[in-house]
C-alpha cells in the first residue's frame, strides 16, 4: 500500500550547501503532521520541492500513488496540494476578500475573452465566488475585515488571511509554513482550533512550527528534520523527550 504523500531520496544543493540530503518521509491521510527542526534544516526547501517551486537534484514526490515530478505549481494545486509561505506573501494592495478570491479555483471571467464578451455572466458568477470567499473569511473569523486592504490588517489578521486563501484553493493536503508564529494567545488558540477543525473536515495538514506548545497540542505525528535529512519521527511526546533533539533544538523549557 502506498502512502498518501511520499517523499523519497530528495537531494538539493545550493552551491556548496547540501540543503536536502536524502530526505524522505511519508504522511498518512487525515492527520496533522508537524515538521520541526533547527533553522536552516531544509523545512521550507522541502515545501518548495513538494509544491513544484523547486526541482530537486534527485528524488521523488508521490501523492496518492502518483508521481508529481516535474509538474508546475499550478498542476500540483490542481492535484490537491497547496501551501502557505513563511513570509505570508499576501497581495497587500488588494482587499482581504480579493486575496481569498485569488485563492479560489479558476472560474469564468478569469480569461479576457469571457470577461469582455460575457460581462453579465461574469458578474453573476463572480458574485457567487464572492459569497464563497466570504465563507472562507468567516471560517477564519475575518468576515468583518473583508473590504479592508491587506496592508492595513494587523499581523495576526494577515496570518489568518493566509490560511483563508490557502483554504480557498480547495486542496486536500495543506502545507503550512509557521502559521502560528507571532500570534497572540487568543489568535493562536483560534488558529489551532481552525487547524483541528480543518482536519475534522477531512483535510490533511503538514505544518512547520517552532512553538513547542503548539506542536504538542495539534500534532498527531512529528517529523524532525536536521541538516536536510529526516533525523527522527514519532509522537510529540517521543520527540520532545528525546535528549539528542533537546540538545540541538529544544533547549531548556521556555
Amino acid at each position: 500500500m502506498s502512502a498518501y504523500l511520499e517523499v523519497s531520496g530528495v537531494n538539493q544543493r545550493f552551491g556548496g550547501l547540501q540543503a536536502l540530503n536524502d530526505c524522505g518521509f511519508a504522511i498518512a491521510q487525515g492527520g496533522i503532521t508537524c515538521m520541526v527542526g533547527p533553522n536552516g534544516a531544509g523545512k521550507t526547501t522541502i515545501f518548495n520541492v513538494i509544491t513544484g517551486f523547486l526541482r530537486p537534484d534527485t528524488g521523488h514526490v508521490a501523492f496518492r500513488g502518483r508521481r508529481l515530478d516535474g509538474l508546475r505549481p499550478q498542476a500540483i494545486v490542481a492535484a490537491g496540494i497547496a501551501r502557505s509561505f513563511q513570509n505570508l506573501r499576501l497581495f497587500v494592495d488588494l482587499t482581504a476578500l480579493e486575496n481569498v478570491l485569488i485563492g479560489l479555483p479558476s472560474g469564468f471571467g478569469e480569461a479576457p475573452l469571457g470577461a469582455l464578451f460575457r460581462p453579465f455572466h461574469t458578474a453573476r458568477l463572480d458574485r457567487a465566488r464572492r459569497a464563497q470567499a466570504m465563507e472562507r473569511l468567516e471560517h477564519v473569523g475575518l468576515a468583518d475585515r473583508a473590504a479592508e486592504k491587506v496592508r492595513n490588517l494587523s499581523y495576526g489578521e494577515q496570518k489568518l488571511l493566509t490560511v483563508a486563501r490557502l483554504l480557498a484553493t480547495g486542496a486536500e493536503l495543506l502545507l503550512l509554513d509557521e502559521p502560528a508564529s507571532g500570534l497572540a494567545a487568543g489568535a493562536l488558540d483560534q488558529v489551532m482550533a481552525l487547524l483541528r477543525r480543518l482536519q475534522g473536515e477531512g483535510k490533511t495538514l503538514l505544518v512547520v512550527e517552532h512553538n513547542t506548545r503548539v506542536v504538542q497540542q495539534i500534532a498527531d505525528h512529528v517529523l524532525f528534520l536536521h541538516q536536510g535529512h529526516l533525523m527522527a519521527e514519532g509522537t510529540p511526546a517521543q520527540i520532545i523527550a528525546d535528549p539528542a533533539l533537546a540538545e540541538i533544538y529544544f533547549g531548556g523549557a521556555l
Binding site: 509544491t51 494545486v77 497547496a82 509561505f85 506573501r89 494592495d93 469564468f108 479576457p112 458578474a123 486563501r165
Partner: peptide
Amino acid sequence: LAMRAPYGRLLKAIREDELAVAAAG
C-alpha cells in the same frame, strides 16, 4: 470590463507577487 472581472484582479495580484499567484494554482 476586464478590470472589474476576476481577470483584472488576477492581473493586479500578478503585479504584486507572481509566486503567490502560482501557489494559488
